[in-house]
Design a protein around this nucleic acid. Structure first.
Lengths: 228, 228
DNA sequence: AATACTTTGTGCCTTCGTTCACAAGCCAGG
DNA sequence: CCTGGCTTGTGAACGAAGGCACAAAGTATT
């Protein structure tokens, strides 16, 4: 992640928080708020206000001292920094349970994400319609990618075929992958991969659950740190 | 007791990686491998081998110098450290697209996660069967939690009701939540929350995709003042 | 038994991220 | 215009995480 060709610009940790800020700002705007202080916004998203200000400072100085930030303007700036000036065209590959759920997920549209293609390599699935789109063969990925300007692929295949499909994705010219398959992918360094592994998340929670179960003891209160 | 399970203060960053190691080890065991070096395992999961060794050292010294780690034994130790000696009983709340997909996801069983309850508060959904379970009313959560020893809740409700439901979850005695709703929750400090937000993940990738698009340029990456 | 070889476990240094705390800057009111 | 009250933006201290490099500790070989 932090390795290789990282432009000395916005730190990774900050980038991962920007979407949170954006969501909170959008929510505030919906309730008619036009101006917000770092303290207020920080409370909403649950972070330290100094961290929030520093994060925003990487984008430029868009706050007004003594006043706060203009909600609309800040939203625009964050959107711009994230590259959301246009919707991101996403292809979902693997139409199992998860793939279908992703295709039908209605939380994307309002946040700059548009699903433009559904792919599978099972002939029994190809051609069926899911969430308003027709499932297409994986083999068509290169054509689809260039025609619809796909920038991001969501991999929802079984673990066994994830690497193989990921190679196809990269060959098709896509450089950003959201990997839902429970396996790690070996890909060129210039391809960005983020991983969402549900069982992993549960196991991390299991650890903390165990800690708090053992934690009530009078022994050592040494580790009462908050996570994240 | 005095020997093996001496896990005092495993760093968060390590905890998040342990499930990855466990998955890789399980996969290795399935292919008949009985012993593995830190270098080999590190390659499989895509991390630095020194980091891997340091991570494992927090659990204790289970490697043999000159040889490596016994796959089965190490798996057991990690499982134990994570608190996976028993399956984690999980309740999924919110039976929309995502909740259904989670309920039907077949990647849990083999990794120590058992879905023991599906909940919703829509009477039209309650009583229907999904993935072998009957959907129950959210109001029954306290009883279900104690009867089935639920330790973790997955929140797959709309953003609007997430906080409200989370409060119920906590009131029912659950202290670990995996939040799929695109909102941040305000909860007591002793409740562990992890968040999975799909749109956020895509937006993070969008940033990196944009970076590599602009990558070759010598100019400044982020200064978008002219945009209005 | 002694030497050669392999791999772990970890001390130390570097890098990255977080938090504090305060000067700088802006608005409002008199 | 000046004063007082807020809030931003950031230098500096602190802390967590990452990675190098090597001594320690084992196996294999002769």
């Amino acid at each position: 992640m932090g390795s290789a060709t990282e432009r000395r610009g916005i730190p990774d940790a900050t980038v991962t928080r920007l979407p949170e800020y954006l969501r909170a700002l959008t929510s505030l705007a919906d309730t008619g708020v036009t101006s917000v202080s770092s303290e207020e916004l920080a409370t909403v998203v649950g972070v330290n206000s100094a961290k929030l200000r520093k994060d925003l400072s990487y984008l430029g100085s868009y706050g007004v001292r003594g006043v706060g930030y203009d909600v609309t303007h800040l939203s625009d700036q964050i959107s711009s920094a994230l590259g959301l000036t246009r919707d991101q065209a996403v292809a979902i590959i693997g139409m199992g349970n998860l793939g279908r759920a992703l295709a039908a997920y209605n939380g994307f549209a309002s946040r700059g994400v548009e699903v433009v293609a559904l792919l599978d390599h099972d002939p029994a699935v190809i051609g069926s319609r899911i969430a308003g789109l027709t499932v297409e063969p994986v083999a068509d990925l290169p054509r689809i990618t260039s025609e619809r300007e796909v920038t991001i692929a969501m991999l929802a295949t079984p673990a066994g075929s994830a690497q193989e499909v990921a190679d196809l994705v990269v060959a098709a010219g896509i450089t950003a992958i959201l990997n839902f398959a429970p396996t790690s992918l070996e890909l060129p360094a210039d391809v960005q991969v983020r991983k969402v592994d549900l069982a992993t998340e549960v196991q991390i929670l299991a650890f903390h659950a165990q800690q708090s179960r053992l934690g009530g003891l009078p022994a050592e209160p040494v580790l009462t740190e908050a996570v994240q």
